[in-house]
Design a protein around this nucleic acid. Structure first.
Lengths: 197, 197
DNA sequence: ACCTGAACACCGTTCAAGT
DNA sequence: ACCTGAACACCGTTCAAGT
Protein backbone atom coordinates (compact mmCIF):
# COMPACT_ATOMS: atom_id res chain seq x y z
CA UNK A 1 0.00 0.00 0.00
CA UNK A 2 1.02 3.62 -0.53
CA UNK A 3 2.45 2.81 -3.93
CA UNK A 4 0.27 2.93 -7.10
CA UNK A 5 -1.58 -0.33 -7.53
CA UNK A 6 -2.56 -1.58 -10.93
CA UNK A 7 -6.16 -0.62 -11.63
CA UNK A 8 -6.15 2.26 -9.16
CA UNK A 9 -6.74 5.72 -10.61
CA UNK A 10 -3.58 7.76 -10.94
CA UNK A 11 -2.88 10.46 -8.40
CA UNK A 12 -3.23 13.94 -9.84
CA UNK A 13 -5.01 17.27 -9.46
CA UNK A 14 -8.28 15.85 -10.78
CA UNK A 15 -8.38 12.92 -8.41
CA UNK A 16 -7.35 15.01 -5.43
CA UNK A 17 -10.03 17.58 -6.21
CA UNK A 18 -12.76 14.97 -6.64
CA UNK A 19 -11.79 13.33 -3.37
CA UNK A 20 -11.87 16.72 -1.67
CA UNK A 21 -15.37 17.45 -2.99
CA UNK A 22 -16.51 14.01 -1.83
CA UNK A 23 -15.32 14.75 1.69
CA UNK A 24 -16.87 18.21 1.58
CA UNK A 25 -20.12 16.55 0.61
CA UNK A 26 -20.16 13.78 3.16
CA UNK A 27 -18.40 15.32 6.16
CA UNK A 28 -18.45 19.08 5.68
CA UNK A 29 -15.85 21.82 5.50
CA UNK A 30 -14.51 21.23 9.00
CA UNK A 31 -13.45 17.70 8.10
CA UNK A 32 -11.87 18.71 4.81
CA UNK A 33 -8.15 18.45 5.50
CA UNK A 34 -5.12 17.44 3.47
CA UNK A 35 -4.54 14.61 5.92
CA UNK A 36 -8.06 13.32 5.38
CA UNK A 37 -7.73 13.48 1.60
CA UNK A 38 -4.41 11.65 1.77
CA UNK A 39 -5.92 9.02 4.04
CA UNK A 40 -8.72 8.30 1.57
CA UNK A 41 -6.27 8.17 -1.33
CA UNK A 42 -3.84 5.96 0.54
CA UNK A 43 -0.87 8.26 0.17
CA UNK A 44 1.20 10.40 2.49
CA UNK A 45 -0.03 13.94 3.11
CA UNK A 46 3.22 15.31 1.72
CA UNK A 47 2.49 13.63 -1.62
CA UNK A 48 -0.28 16.16 -2.21
CA UNK A 49 2.25 18.98 -2.16
CA UNK A 50 3.57 17.78 -5.49
CA UNK A 51 0.26 18.84 -7.06
CA UNK A 52 -0.79 21.79 -4.91
CA UNK A 53 1.65 24.13 -3.27
CA UNK A 54 -0.62 24.67 -0.28
CA UNK A 55 -4.06 24.01 1.12
CA UNK A 56 -5.11 27.47 -0.05
CA UNK A 57 -4.09 26.58 -3.61
CA UNK A 58 -6.25 23.46 -3.48
CA UNK A 59 -9.18 25.53 -2.21
CA UNK A 60 -8.76 27.98 -5.09
CA UNK A 61 -8.76 25.11 -7.52
CA UNK A 62 -11.96 23.72 -6.01
CA UNK A 63 -13.70 27.09 -6.19
CA UNK A 64 -12.81 27.46 -9.84
CA UNK A 65 -14.04 23.95 -10.51
CA UNK A 66 -17.39 24.63 -8.90
CA UNK A 67 -17.75 27.93 -10.72
CA UNK A 68 -16.92 26.27 -14.02
CA UNK A 69 -19.61 23.66 -13.47
CA UNK A 70 -22.20 26.33 -12.77
CA UNK A 71 -21.37 28.09 -16.01
CA UNK A 72 -21.40 24.83 -17.94
CA UNK A 73 -24.97 24.26 -16.78
CA UNK A 74 -26.19 27.60 -18.07
CA UNK A 75 -27.73 27.76 -21.54
CA UNK A 76 -24.93 29.24 -23.68
CA UNK A 77 -27.36 31.19 -25.82
CA UNK A 78 -28.55 33.34 -22.92
CA UNK A 79 -27.40 36.95 -22.53
CA UNK A 80 -28.27 40.06 -20.56
CA UNK A 81 -30.78 39.83 -17.72
CA UNK A 82 -31.91 36.35 -18.67
CA UNK A 83 -28.32 35.17 -18.23
CA UNK A 84 -28.14 36.89 -14.85
CA UNK A 85 -31.24 35.03 -13.75
CA UNK A 86 -30.06 31.66 -15.04
CA UNK A 87 -26.62 32.14 -13.52
CA UNK A 88 -28.09 32.88 -10.10
CA UNK A 89 -30.31 29.81 -10.25
CA UNK A 90 -27.42 27.59 -11.29
CA UNK A 91 -25.11 29.01 -8.67
CA UNK A 92 -27.50 28.27 -5.86
CA UNK A 93 -28.68 24.85 -7.05
CA UNK A 94 -25.09 23.74 -7.50
CA UNK A 95 -24.08 25.08 -4.11
CA UNK A 96 -27.07 23.34 -2.58
CA UNK A 97 -26.35 19.99 -4.19
CA UNK A 98 -22.96 19.85 -2.49
CA UNK A 99 -22.92 20.35 1.26
CA UNK A 100 -20.75 23.24 2.46
CA UNK A 101 -19.77 24.21 -1.09
CA UNK A 102 -20.95 27.72 -0.33
CA UNK A 103 -18.82 27.87 2.79
CA UNK A 104 -15.84 26.74 0.77
CA UNK A 105 -16.39 29.54 -1.71
CA UNK A 106 -16.70 32.13 1.02
CA UNK A 107 -13.47 30.96 2.62
CA UNK A 108 -11.47 30.01 -0.48
CA UNK A 109 -9.47 32.47 -2.52
CA UNK A 110 -9.88 33.46 -6.15
CA UNK A 111 -7.88 31.63 -8.78
CA UNK A 112 -6.15 33.14 -11.79
CA UNK A 113 -8.46 31.40 -14.25
CA UNK A 114 -11.51 32.74 -12.49
CA UNK A 115 -10.21 36.29 -12.48
CA UNK A 116 -8.86 36.47 -15.99
CA UNK A 117 -11.08 34.12 -17.95
CA UNK A 118 -14.38 33.00 -16.48
CA UNK A 119 -15.62 36.23 -14.90
CA UNK A 120 -14.71 38.51 -17.81
CA UNK A 121 -16.46 36.07 -20.15
CA UNK A 122 -19.60 36.19 -18.05
CA UNK A 123 -19.49 39.98 -17.90
CA UNK A 124 -19.23 40.24 -21.67
CA UNK A 125 -22.33 38.12 -22.10
CA UNK A 126 -24.32 40.17 -19.61
CA UNK A 127 -23.35 43.57 -21.02
CA UNK A 128 -25.61 43.57 -24.06
CA UNK A 129 -28.53 45.70 -25.20
CA UNK A 130 -29.19 48.51 -22.78
CA UNK A 131 -26.79 47.20 -20.12
CA UNK A 132 -23.50 49.05 -19.76
CA UNK A 133 -20.29 47.24 -18.73
CA UNK A 134 -20.39 48.98 -15.35
CA UNK A 135 -23.99 47.99 -14.84
CA UNK A 136 -23.18 44.40 -15.81
CA UNK A 137 -20.41 44.23 -13.24
CA UNK A 138 -22.62 45.58 -10.51
CA UNK A 139 -25.48 43.27 -11.43
CA UNK A 140 -23.25 40.18 -11.51
CA UNK A 141 -21.85 41.16 -8.14
CA UNK A 142 -25.33 41.47 -6.70
CA UNK A 143 -26.48 38.14 -8.14
CA UNK A 144 -23.37 36.37 -6.91
CA UNK A 145 -23.77 37.88 -3.47
CA UNK A 146 -27.43 36.93 -3.14
CA UNK A 147 -26.90 33.40 -4.41
CA UNK A 148 -23.84 32.76 -2.27
CA UNK A 149 -25.42 34.23 0.84
CA UNK A 150 -28.61 32.27 0.28
CA UNK A 151 -26.71 29.03 -0.19
CA UNK A 152 -24.76 29.65 3.01
CA UNK A 153 -27.92 30.18 5.03
CA UNK A 154 -29.51 27.15 3.46
CA UNK A 155 -26.53 25.00 4.36
CA UNK A 156 -26.43 26.21 7.94
CA UNK A 157 -29.08 26.01 10.60
CA UNK A 158 -29.93 29.64 10.12
CA UNK A 159 -33.17 30.42 11.93
CA UNK A 160 -34.68 32.63 9.27
CA UNK A 161 -34.04 30.34 6.35
CA UNK A 162 -34.55 27.38 8.61
CA UNK A 163 -38.14 28.45 9.10
CA UNK A 164 -38.59 29.00 5.42
CA UNK A 165 -37.09 25.55 4.79
CA UNK A 166 -39.62 23.91 7.03
CA UNK A 167 -42.27 25.03 4.61
CA UNK A 168 -42.55 23.26 1.31
CA UNK A 169 -39.57 23.29 -1.00
CA UNK A 170 -41.69 24.94 -3.62
CA UNK A 171 -42.34 27.87 -1.38
CA UNK A 172 -38.67 28.12 -0.55
CA UNK A 173 -37.60 27.89 -4.14
CA UNK A 174 -40.07 30.56 -5.04
CA UNK A 175 -38.74 32.79 -2.26
CA UNK A 176 -35.29 32.62 -3.77
CA UNK A 177 -36.61 33.01 -7.28
CA UNK A 178 -38.59 36.06 -6.30
CA UNK A 179 -35.52 37.69 -4.79
CA UNK A 180 -33.44 36.70 -7.78
CA UNK A 181 -36.02 38.10 -10.12
CA UNK A 182 -36.19 41.36 -8.22
CA UNK A 183 -32.44 41.68 -8.68
CA UNK A 184 -31.98 40.42 -12.22
CA UNK A 185 -34.87 42.36 -13.70
CA UNK A 186 -35.24 45.16 -11.19
CA UNK A 187 -31.60 46.16 -10.96
CA UNK A 188 -30.76 49.29 -12.91
CA UNK A 189 -34.37 50.03 -13.80
CA UNK A 190 -36.21 53.14 -12.77
CA UNK A 191 -37.83 51.51 -9.77
CA UNK A 192 -34.43 50.62 -8.34
CA UNK A 193 -32.93 54.06 -8.88
CA UNK A 194 -35.41 55.92 -6.76
CA UNK A 195 -34.46 56.35 -3.13
CA UNK A 196 -36.93 55.54 -0.38
CA UNK A 197 -38.63 58.42 1.35
CA UNK B 1 2.26 35.81 34.81
CA UNK B 2 -0.73 33.66 34.09
CA UNK B 3 -2.43 34.70 37.27
CA UNK B 4 -4.73 37.77 37.43
CA UNK B 5 -2.65 40.89 38.02
CA UNK B 6 -4.11 43.87 39.77
CA UNK B 7 -5.34 46.40 37.23
CA UNK B 8 -5.75 43.82 34.50
CA UNK B 9 -9.29 43.30 33.19
CA UNK B 10 -10.94 40.18 34.54
CA UNK B 11 -11.15 37.12 32.33
CA UNK B 12 -14.69 36.41 31.14
CA UNK B 13 -16.89 35.93 28.10
CA UNK B 14 -16.82 39.65 27.29
CA UNK B 15 -13.06 39.95 27.36
CA UNK B 16 -12.52 36.75 25.42
CA UNK B 17 -14.99 37.84 22.75
CA UNK B 18 -13.43 41.30 22.41
CA UNK B 19 -9.99 39.78 22.09
CA UNK B 20 -11.29 37.39 19.47
CA UNK B 21 -12.80 40.23 17.43
CA UNK B 22 -9.53 42.14 17.69
CA UNK B 23 -7.64 39.20 16.24
CA UNK B 24 -10.27 38.73 13.55
CA UNK B 25 -9.81 42.36 12.65
CA UNK B 26 -6.04 42.47 12.60
CA UNK B 27 -5.07 39.01 11.43
CA UNK B 28 -8.14 37.47 9.81
CA UNK B 29 -10.18 34.34 10.36
CA UNK B 30 -7.33 31.92 9.69
CA UNK B 31 -5.35 33.30 12.60
CA UNK B 32 -8.31 33.26 14.99
CA UNK B 33 -7.59 30.35 17.29
CA UNK B 34 -8.16 29.61 20.95
CA UNK B 35 -4.41 29.35 21.40
CA UNK B 36 -3.92 32.81 19.91
CA UNK B 37 -6.60 34.32 22.13
CA UNK B 38 -5.08 32.69 25.18
CA UNK B 39 -1.63 33.96 24.22
CA UNK B 40 -2.89 37.54 23.99
CA UNK B 41 -4.71 37.23 27.31
CA UNK B 42 -1.77 35.59 29.03
CA UNK B 43 -3.66 32.52 30.14
CA UNK B 44 -3.58 28.86 29.23
CA UNK B 45 -5.75 27.74 26.33
CA UNK B 46 -7.62 25.39 28.63
CA UNK B 47 -8.70 28.35 30.76
CA UNK B 48 -11.00 29.47 27.95
CA UNK B 49 -12.97 26.25 28.30
CA UNK B 50 -14.34 27.49 31.57
CA UNK B 51 -16.26 30.17 29.65
CA UNK B 52 -16.96 28.45 26.34
CA UNK B 53 -17.50 24.74 25.98
CA UNK B 54 -15.91 24.68 22.52
CA UNK B 55 -14.52 26.83 19.74
CA UNK B 56 -17.88 26.51 17.96
CA UNK B 57 -19.65 27.93 21.03
CA UNK B 58 -17.33 30.94 21.00
CA UNK B 59 -18.04 31.46 17.29
CA UNK B 60 -21.78 31.39 17.95
CA UNK B 61 -21.36 33.96 20.67
CA UNK B 62 -19.37 36.20 18.34
CA UNK B 63 -22.00 35.95 15.60
CA UNK B 64 -24.74 36.91 17.99
CA UNK B 65 -22.66 39.82 19.26
CA UNK B 66 -22.13 41.13 15.73
CA UNK B 67 -25.80 40.69 14.88
CA UNK B 68 -26.83 42.51 18.04
CA UNK B 69 -24.61 45.45 17.15
CA UNK B 70 -26.15 45.70 13.71
CA UNK B 71 -29.64 45.81 15.18
CA UNK B 72 -28.57 48.37 17.76
CA UNK B 73 -27.45 50.68 14.97
CA UNK B 74 -30.81 50.57 13.22
CA UNK B 75 -33.32 53.31 13.96
CA UNK B 76 -35.82 51.60 16.34
CA UNK B 77 -38.76 53.48 14.86
CA UNK B 78 -38.37 51.88 11.43
CA UNK B 79 -40.71 49.11 10.26
CA UNK B 80 -41.64 47.27 7.07
CA UNK B 81 -39.61 47.82 3.92
CA UNK B 82 -37.73 50.78 5.37
CA UNK B 83 -36.50 48.54 8.16
CA UNK B 84 -35.42 45.92 5.62
CA UNK B 85 -33.41 48.54 3.80
CA UNK B 86 -31.78 49.93 6.95
CA UNK B 87 -31.01 46.47 8.25
CA UNK B 88 -29.23 45.52 5.03
CA UNK B 89 -27.15 48.69 5.08
CA UNK B 90 -26.19 48.17 8.70
CA UNK B 91 -25.36 44.52 8.18
CA UNK B 92 -22.95 45.24 5.39
CA UNK B 93 -21.32 48.33 6.88
CA UNK B 94 -20.71 46.50 10.13
CA UNK B 95 -19.35 43.46 8.35
CA UNK B 96 -17.11 45.72 6.31
CA UNK B 97 -15.76 47.60 9.31
CA UNK B 98 -14.39 44.38 10.77
CA UNK B 99 -12.19 42.27 8.53
CA UNK B 100 -13.43 38.73 7.97
CA UNK B 101 -16.53 39.25 10.09
CA UNK B 102 -18.60 38.05 7.14
CA UNK B 103 -16.51 34.92 6.84
CA UNK B 104 -17.02 34.27 10.53
CA UNK B 105 -20.78 34.54 10.14
CA UNK B 106 -20.79 32.18 7.18
CA UNK B 107 -18.77 29.61 9.10
CA UNK B 108 -20.16 30.13 12.60
CA UNK B 109 -23.30 28.50 13.88
CA UNK B 110 -26.49 30.08 15.08
CA UNK B 111 -26.93 30.80 18.77
CA UNK B 112 -30.03 30.30 20.86
CA UNK B 113 -30.51 34.01 21.45
CA UNK B 114 -30.36 34.71 17.75
CA UNK B 115 -32.91 32.05 16.93
CA UNK B 116 -35.42 32.69 19.67
CA UNK B 117 -35.09 36.38 20.35
CA UNK B 118 -33.35 38.61 17.82
CA UNK B 119 -34.64 37.19 14.56
CA UNK B 120 -38.28 36.83 15.66
CA UNK B 121 -38.16 40.42 16.89
CA UNK B 122 -36.88 41.63 13.55
CA UNK B 123 -39.54 39.64 11.71
CA UNK B 124 -42.31 41.17 13.79
CA UNK B 125 -41.13 44.66 12.95
CA UNK B 126 -40.98 43.88 9.24
CA UNK B 127 -44.38 42.23 9.00
CA UNK B 128 -46.55 45.36 9.10
CA UNK B 129 -48.93 47.00 6.69
CA UNK B 130 -49.33 44.92 3.55
CA UNK B 131 -46.49 42.52 4.39
CA UNK B 132 -47.51 39.06 5.57
CA UNK B 133 -45.40 37.10 8.09
CA UNK B 134 -44.37 34.69 5.33
CA UNK B 135 -43.37 37.53 3.08
CA UNK B 136 -41.42 39.15 5.90
CA UNK B 137 -39.46 35.97 6.49
CA UNK B 138 -38.62 35.59 2.85
CA UNK B 139 -37.64 39.23 2.50
CA UNK B 140 -35.40 39.15 5.57
CA UNK B 141 -33.78 36.01 4.23
CA UNK B 142 -33.10 37.70 0.91
CA UNK B 143 -31.70 40.84 2.51
CA UNK B 144 -29.48 38.84 4.85
CA UNK B 145 -28.23 36.73 1.96
CA UNK B 146 -27.41 39.69 -0.25
CA UNK B 147 -25.68 41.64 2.51
CA UNK B 148 -23.68 38.68 3.76
CA UNK B 149 -22.65 37.61 0.28
CA UNK B 150 -21.69 41.13 -0.65
CA UNK B 151 -19.60 41.56 2.48
CA UNK B 152 -17.82 38.28 1.80
CA UNK B 153 -16.91 39.33 -1.72
CA UNK B 154 -15.82 42.72 -0.48
CA UNK B 155 -13.56 41.16 2.11
CA UNK B 156 -12.01 38.76 -0.36
CA UNK B 157 -10.07 39.47 -3.49
CA UNK B 158 -13.07 38.59 -5.61
CA UNK B 159 -12.45 39.70 -9.19
CA UNK B 160 -15.91 41.02 -9.86
CA UNK B 161 -16.27 43.08 -6.75
CA UNK B 162 -12.56 43.79 -6.85
CA UNK B 163 -13.09 45.66 -10.09
CA UNK B 164 -16.04 47.50 -8.68
CA UNK B 165 -13.93 48.35 -5.63
CA UNK B 166 -11.23 49.93 -7.77
CA UNK B 167 -13.80 52.48 -8.79
CA UNK B 168 -14.77 55.16 -6.31
CA UNK B 169 -16.33 54.12 -3.06
CA UNK B 170 -19.39 56.14 -3.95
CA UNK B 171 -19.97 54.07 -7.04
CA UNK B 172 -19.51 50.89 -5.11
CA UNK B 173 -21.76 51.96 -2.31
CA UNK B 174 -24.41 52.89 -4.80
CA UNK B 175 -24.08 49.49 -6.49
CA UNK B 176 -24.91 47.80 -3.21
CA UNK B 177 -27.63 50.28 -2.41
CA UNK B 178 -29.25 49.75 -5.78
CA UNK B 179 -29.30 46.00 -5.28
CA UNK B 180 -30.57 46.42 -1.76
CA UNK B 181 -33.27 48.77 -2.92
CA UNK B 182 -34.35 46.36 -5.67
CA UNK B 183 -34.80 43.72 -2.99
CA UNK B 184 -36.31 45.71 -0.15
CA UNK B 185 -38.80 47.59 -2.28
CA UNK B 186 -39.13 45.28 -5.27
CA UNK B 187 -39.60 42.04 -3.37
CA UNK B 188 -43.18 40.88 -3.28
CA UNK B 189 -44.43 43.57 -5.58
CA UNK B 190 -46.07 42.92 -8.90
CA UNK B 191 -42.86 43.37 -10.89
CA UNK B 192 -41.13 40.65 -8.90
CA UNK B 193 -43.97 38.16 -9.17
CA UNK B 194 -43.98 37.98 -12.91
CA UNK B 195 -41.75 35.32 -14.40
CA UNK B 196 -39.33 36.16 -17.19
CA UNK B 197 -40.29 35.11 -20.70
C1' DA C 1 9.29 12.95 -11.97
C1' DC C 2 6.93 11.43 -8.15
C1' DC C 3 6.48 9.74 -3.58
C1' DT C 4 7.94 8.29 1.34
C1' DG C 5 9.19 9.19 6.09
C1' DA C 6 10.53 11.93 9.60
C1' DA C 7 10.43 16.26 11.65
C1' DC C 8 8.43 20.82 13.26
C1' DA C 9 5.22 24.18 15.05
C1' DC C 10 0.59 24.70 15.77
C1' DC C 11 -4.19 23.45 16.82
C1' DG C 12 -8.71 21.85 19.71
C1' DT C 13 -10.02 19.21 23.59
C1' DT C 14 -9.84 16.65 28.00
C1' DC C 15 -8.74 16.08 32.65
C1' DA C 16 -6.40 15.64 36.95
C1' DA C 17 -4.50 18.73 40.00
C1' DG C 18 -3.91 22.91 42.37
C1' DT C 19 -5.80 27.23 44.93
C1' DA D 1 -15.16 28.81 41.35
C1' DC D 2 -11.43 29.37 38.42
C1' DC D 3 -7.12 28.27 36.45
C1' DT D 4 -2.65 25.49 35.47
C1' DG D 5 -0.03 21.81 33.35
C1' DA D 6 0.38 17.82 31.02
C1' DA D 7 -1.38 14.82 27.71
C1' DC D 8 -3.63 13.31 23.25
C1' DA D 9 -4.93 13.17 18.43
C1' DC D 10 -4.91 15.95 14.65
C1' DC D 11 -3.36 19.54 11.44
C1' DG D 12 -0.31 22.16 7.53
C1' DT D 13 4.25 22.49 5.82
C1' DT D 14 9.14 21.42 4.83
C1' DC D 15 12.74 18.61 3.34
C1' DA D 16 16.05 15.00 2.81
C1' DA D 17 15.91 10.67 0.95
C1' DG D 18 14.47 7.06 -1.94
C1' DT D 19 13.03 5.05 -6.76
Amino acid sequence: MGRPKAGEPELGRELIAETALDILDSEGLEALSLSQIARVLNVQTSALYWYFKSKAALYEYLCELIFRRVLDDVDPSLTGRDLLYAFGRGFRSNARSSRDAAKLISVGGVSEGLRTELIPGLLRRVAVGGISPLEARQAVTAIEALSLGWAIFEGSQNPVVGEVMRQTNDQNDSAFERALHALAYGFGTDSAKKNPA
